[in-house]
Amino acid sequence: MKKPGKMLAELFRNVTKPPATIQYPFRKLEIPGDSRGRIVFISENCIGCKICVRDCPAEAIYINKPGEEKIFEAVFNLDECIYCAQCVLSCPKDALSISPDIELAQISRASLRLVYPAKPKPPQPPKEKVDKPAEGNAAPAASA
């Protein structure tokens, strides 16, 4: 049965409902907790293997060794990063993780360069024996 104005009932039902759109900067939608946003670097865990640098599809991450000590800083170019989180997956030591921080727009290019400074390792010896559990989603082997 064809009739014009098929959607009329639906339209009138929705007039009184609150709008589906929101005014963004004033109200924000809820972002799922494990959304892939800005990558977080935990300097204490980094061993400087640079697998993340090698695997990054966008060449957005750099790991530097600022001093003589074996501590590392990470530089992210937020404008080059494609937020795929492959580096998180590749990291053998949990030095990288994702955060749901997606509002990364900046007004200058310089502030898109995010530096996580090198931090000295905590005094107690890290437990080297405990490897990352080999789950099904384990990253490809580092030594291949």
């Binding site: 339209l11 009138f12 929705n14 007039v15 409902k17 709008p19 589906a20 759109t21 929101i22 005014q23």
Partner: peptide, 9 residues
């Protein structure tokens, strides 16, 4: 038009 379309307008 917007409210009928469930938008804010």
């Amino acid at each position: 038009y917007a409210r009928l379309q469930n938008r804010k307008g």
